[in-house]
Design a protein around this nucleic acid. Structure first.
Lengths: 230, 230
DNA sequence: AGAGGCTTGTGACCGCATTCTCAAACTCTA
DNA sequence: TAGAGTTTGAGAATGCGGTCACAAGCCTCT
């Protein structure tokens, strides 16, 4: 097995495994089989084994995986053995919620600064931090060694926020704004879009409804199909 | 081309196209080529054409797509020609932010209720709504024809929230809690996990750092060039 | 010590998604 | 109306990720 070639899909599941493993240690467990981990993480066991095999051969045949050791290995691979400083750009509804979100610190992500372009907000306190001026972003990033930028601005401001983060040297951006933003190749970009998720649900909901009425219609001759494509 | 078989990956991109198209009408445009839409949505043009071809042949060769017509077709396919009522379960940090989020109503998603299991919160007003008792979930879902449940509880309460939503008849769930939840096959489930996204970024950030130090060590003994594009 | 029972790690296979490519179809201009 | 220039739609090729299946390896029990 090659040393450096973890598939994207696997990387996306490692945090899931990590969380399940952490819960298991809390419950006093010490080893777990791929089957057990698969159940906890909501995937199937072959996938778990294949994913973990990319990290190395850390399991014991006939026994399973040592939970503590596996947590260490996954954490190391994900770069969670160090702390990462984040800056939240845009402190509206969502920015506020993110700033107060407990889940970050739990895994070594520290919100090191909040910035907003609206000068009326500058100085306002949110939890332990005060909102700072967007114009000072570059200085803040450098001084506090921020490596992750979280964009929570309105859509129109998102690309600008990203550009400024990039030029300040940030190489990882998480975008919550409902807008497509582009960054240079050497910058990692991930996006979270609430509205898009709802629209995807809407699609399947509507399809379920369509299938249901189709089935009904087929059984009872009464009404005709609504939509025949021209 | 088959009538009813839109790939998941395509469904996930349709909302993206829809947003780009809406921006184009705002700018007064009337037609767009697959290339133009691809640029706006941040994908490539072949993908746009293939995606749109699943909906039908709505383009004109040599011209492109009629924006307004395309918006109508995508909206219809996504089930956005009707409004959907949502209930937010768990009104903590995130629940609050979601309740106030403007982006929902824009696409026909209406937050019809907020519920929380903490009775001290019950009655508290958030925007136009008052927080209601989690115990009343079933009644609320039925009375207000809620079809989408948004889970924003702490991790431990997430599965219970989902179970109650399901037994109340909700068939679409969006989970923000950092926990794996399971639902029956006929229920759609999507998840958004902030912490996982950060961990994925962390992985790539750390790998970049590792590659960088490797390259530095290989090339010269002293200092290295600041930014060399790979 | 040997047998039997588990569980891992991985090669092989399969299916979906993306990309490539180009004929078909349209517009515009002269 | 003919020819040049665009752009779609879809078949073919490619690649990635998921699943299957099983040999290899470890443990326990007798």
């Amino acid at each position: 097995m090659r040393e450096r070639a973890i598939p994207e899909a696997t990387v996306a599941r490692l945090p899931l495994y990590l969380r399940s493993l952490a819960e298991m240690t809390d419950r006093g467990m010490h080893t777990v089989s791929s089957e057990g981990l698969a159940d906890a993480a909501g995937v199937n066991s072959a996938k778990v084994r294949k994913d973990l095999s990319y990290l190395g051969s850390y399991g014991t045949r006939g026994v399973g995986y040592d939970i503590e050791y596996l947590i260490y290995q996954i954490s190391r691979e994900l770069g969670l053995t160090q702390d990462w400083n984040c800056v939240i750009v845009g402190v509206g509804n969502l920015g506020h919620a993110l700033a107060n979100y407990r889940g970050f610190s739990a895994r070594g992500f520290r919100v090191a600064a909040l910035v907003d372009a609206d000068e009326r907000k500058v100085g306002e306190r949110v939890g332990e931090l005060a909102i700072e001026d967007f114009e000072d972003l570059e200085r803040i990033v450098k001084e506090r060694q921020v490596s992750i930028g979280i964009v929570a601005t309105p859509a129109v401001a998102a690309q600008d926020a990203a550009d400024r983060l990039v030029s300040a040297g940030v190489k990882s951006i998480l975008n919550f704004a409902p807008a497509v933003i582009t960054v240079p190749d050497d910058v990692s970009l991930r996006k979270v879009d609430l509205s898009i998720e709802l629209q995807i649900l809407s699609f399947y909901e509507q399809r379920k409804a369509a299938l249901e009425s189709l089935r009904r219609g087929k059984r009872l001759t009464a009404s005709a199909a609504k939509s025949t494509r021209p």
